[in-house]
Amino acid sequence: MKANAEVTIKTEKKTVTAVLSGEIDHHSAPPIRQAIDEAVIVFEPEELVLDFGLVSFMDSSGIGLVMGRYRLLEDMKCKLSVINLSSHAFKVMKLAGLDKIANLTKGGDSYEGKK
């Protein structure tokens, strides 16, 4: 069964950007996590950007995804930014206090407009 979420990894200079799309839950998160971790380990970036602009749903598995990457980056002197959050995803991450460990920014017209 194809997962209902995907990730595209882009690298530029010392930044790795992971563009996530679809629905992030316990079913879809593992391959995304693996792809991001592989890129981080290979490129050793100074910043990891998680782009949530195309994410249409997220539960606490998204919190786990961000927290897990934060732990990986802690020993690597790498900054973590989470961008283009929908108001829903922002609400979930805020609840978890992720704004204290990563740079969180909302997207302009997130998925609510596209539905």
Partner: peptide, 14 residues
Amino acid sequence: GGDRSGLGFSVMES
């Protein structure tokens, strides 16, 4: 452990 955040019930509650 792993990527479970332990926040499932907190999310349901809020």
